[in-house]
Nucleic acid binder design. Sequence first.
RNA 1: GGCGCUAUCGUCUAGGGGUUAGGACGUGAGAUUCUCAAUCUUAAAACCCGGGUUCGAUUCCCGGUAGCGCUACCA
Length: 504
Amino acid sequence: MPYEKHSQTTAPRVRFAPSPTGYLHVGGARTALFNWLFARHTGGTFILRIEDTDFERSSEAMVEGILDGMRWLGLTWDEGPFYQSKRLDLYKETAAKIVASGHAYPCFCTKEELEQRRKEAAEAGRPLMYDRRCRRIPQEEATRRVAAGEPAAIRFAVPENGSTSFDDAVFGKVEFANAEIEDFVLLRSDGIPTYHLSVVADDIDMQLTHIIRGADHISNTPKQVLQYRALGAPLPVFAHVPLILGPDKTRLSKRHGATSVTAYKDMGIVPEAFRNFLSLLGWTPGGIKDESGKEREIFPSDELVQLFSLEGISKSNAVFDNDKLTWFNAEYIRALPVEELSKMLEPVFAKAGMHAAPEKLLAVTPLIRERMKTLNDAAAVADFFFVEELAPYETADLIPQKGDAALALRILAQTRKVLTQVDFSSAAMEQVLREAATELGVKAGPMFQPIRVAVCGRKNAPPLFESMEVLGRAVCLKRIGYAEEKLKLLAAEEPALLNGESHS
RNA sequence: GGCGCUAUCGUCUAGGGGUUAGGACGUGAGAUUCUCAAUCUUAAAACCCGGGUUCGAUUCCCGGUAGCGCUACCA
């Protein structure tokens, strides 16, 4: 019974097998995540394997990038990384075994010949498949030519009739007519294996029980099944995961903007949020409700691990929705402990060229955390806490709705006076300034706008009193004084403003 | 072109022979507030089309259409 599946009782062994011809992209990350979740959920083993048999396109830098991405996402692997480039002997042996079993043969056609024939076939409207001509070469002749040193690739001898099928954990039974399957190359004439050979050789050698990978591999699977059979190896469970598409529903690519995982890191996305978002692209835990009976989508990693199962994987492709990722990110940022968030923000300010002392940043963090969607937003939201000099702002912004510059001036003067005496705590300032508003006969809104603009340098800012408390008395008074100067200058140019006439 | 796969709001999805087809993101409106944000309430928004099967299909079957994937001595 050489074709039986792996026993369900053995602990699962899964792998992520990227090819280092590019960075870790979103699709790859999701595949890695699903494998990782599956391994962690089942108590299995997660293996990392680098498929670098394409020497021209692979690079060590790309490997590093992929490992970085994995680490950032917290996808820890248990074995590896194994490099296919160091396992060439295994592939040659495996190819030899398949030849010995009569399921493969040497092919002497050159790449050029094949290309030429394919071109002709295309023009004539004939099928583009390899015509299997070398399969008909008598065995002694083939052996002799190989022995004589004639370059030969090894091709798999696909049955001419019947069909090859497999039971996919996601898609169910998938069947291909053998007549549609080409006699694919196992080993190139230079002795380097093709993908078809190396995956199977490694997947068998590493005793993988489940192959969780992108749905773009569905059509490759029968070629692999054929090899498992030729080698008498037990078939793993195949689980093909639908693809991730861009907003235009074409395969996600650089055209759609950020596609590498590190780009999201650089944008200020939190790994937990990214993981949560990614896990829900093409997978669903099946309607988990919260206390109020609404379905929930926020699942921290440990819960994801607990919930994950192959059954929840959907069959249709999913569009990558940046807005939703941003929402997840904001949710996670808000839920982070202040100390932790504060630490994560340090490099953001450093990168923006601002000195954000840790203690001060710790005080600022709670004021800004529900005002950012990404970590990077912090620099723009909280800049006024850390700069010596405020960025230039419109003097007109100091003037509340009515356009009454004189009123603005009175508000600022009164504020300055009051602030010199008050205990510089947000509660005390709020009380005292509200009293001042009553005295001046102004509502809270108009009262606080000039102060906010003077102190923060813009109309929209974090809560005023808490911000002033962090800023300290000296800075606040200085900024208010400066605002008064600006206002006086403007009023001198446009005296009408002092009469409460609308400023246009 | 051939082969394979898929098809519920704009997007991610739940559901499943009889439902007001549910939720989330986004969008609109309102509430709250010192601004913004957050929060809360609320609205608009979907079963690709055509045939069957059935008392009844969005759900099951077949066909069409569309989208995606594969179609290399790439992975």
